[in-house]
Simulated assay, not measured.
Amino acid sequence: MRITLLCNLDIASNLAANRLITALPEHHFSVLMTAQVGGKNHRPKALEALSFYENTLFTEILFPALISEQKASGKEVCVKETCDKKGDETPRLLTFGAMQQRGIDIHPVSEINEGNGLSVLERCQPDLILSVRFGRILKPPALDVPNHGVLNLHSGLLPQYRGIMATFWAMLRDESHIGCTLHRIQDGGIDTGDILSTHPIKTDYNLSYFDNMLAIYPAGLDAMIAATKRIADSVALVSIPQNDTQANYYGLPDPASISLFEQKGHRWVIHSNLISLAQRFFPQ
């Protein structure tokens, strides 16, 4: 199948792309990528700092540095799927640039439902769209492009946590579990589509928001991979409508919520964990 992955220019999207592309090598991937989730309105200082770790640190500093090192050495950086060390099966990760070098078309877009973004999507001719952290709401006619529809991996447990930064809001409310939801996108609603599966994990308050946010995705990505394989094999997917009476919508955290989050002792990032993650992009 031809699969178009809709994602965002950030490290969580990169990890998702690595997992999906590696697990589905028999399919042809293209990637459409937004620069950020939501609008360009002024954000509180804490969220600007978080954006540095989620986006700038990796996509504007580390990834270009790796490409420069590759050009200087004449060797491809991060081309191996697994480590060389015996017994170490931690996968080496590909930057977005390395994905392009492997023949995957990556297209930055600022919109998807009209204009250039819609034209790019139509040229990709996807049979299926997979969406992870994409920064725009899909509506017709974009939804009408793929033959097999759109599957979205939402970063919260639906329908209770619609909107953005669900992990933040769950931690703020002292939830014992966080998670993600695999669901269809059937109309222009925000996180309203029929649910294929939910994937709760225990909230680890010893870790940061950033660590917990990254931790919610692997199980959901595995479910997305399995669903893609079923679609390719012409097996129908079973989904259930959301119960709108249980739905809550959350937007960007406001200064008061951020202050309370920090007063509770929650951390945004743990620097040693960032270093460990960055090391996964370097060859052994």
Rank of each mutant, 00 (worst) to 15 (best):
S119N: 15
K229W: 01
I3D: 00
F134S: 08
L138G: 03
H42L: 13
I195K: 08
C180G: 11
T192R: 13
G74K: 11
I231H: 00
R173F: 03
S272I: 03
G251I: 06
K85D: 08
R123G: 04
T4A: 10
R43F: 00
P241S: 11
H154Q: 04
I104R: 00
G189K: 05
V150L: 06
I225H: 07
W169S: 03
V109I: 11
D204K: 09
I11D: 06
I225W: 02
R184W: 15
I240W: 10
S30F: 05
A12I: 08
S239P: 02
I270H: 14
R19V: 06
D244G: 06
P218N: 07
P25A: 02
P91M: 14
P141Y: 11
C7W: 02
L157K: 03
S30V: 02
P126N: 11
E111Y: 01
P126M: 07
S30M: 05
R2S: 08
R43I: 08
K75S: 10
F261D: 06
N206H: 14
N206R: 12
D174H: 13
E262M: 12
V37A: 10
K139S: 11
I201M: 13
K202D: 11
E89D: 15
N243F: 11
H42P: 09
R43P: 00
T167K: 00
L182W: 01
V132D: 08
R19P: 05
W169H: 15
V150S: 09
A65C: 09
C78D: 10
L57M: 15
G87L: 09
I190Y: 13
G38T: 06
F134L: 07
L93P: 07
P91W: 10
L62N: 00
L9F: 04
L121M: 07
L237Y: 13
A236V: 08
T90R: 15
L237P: 10
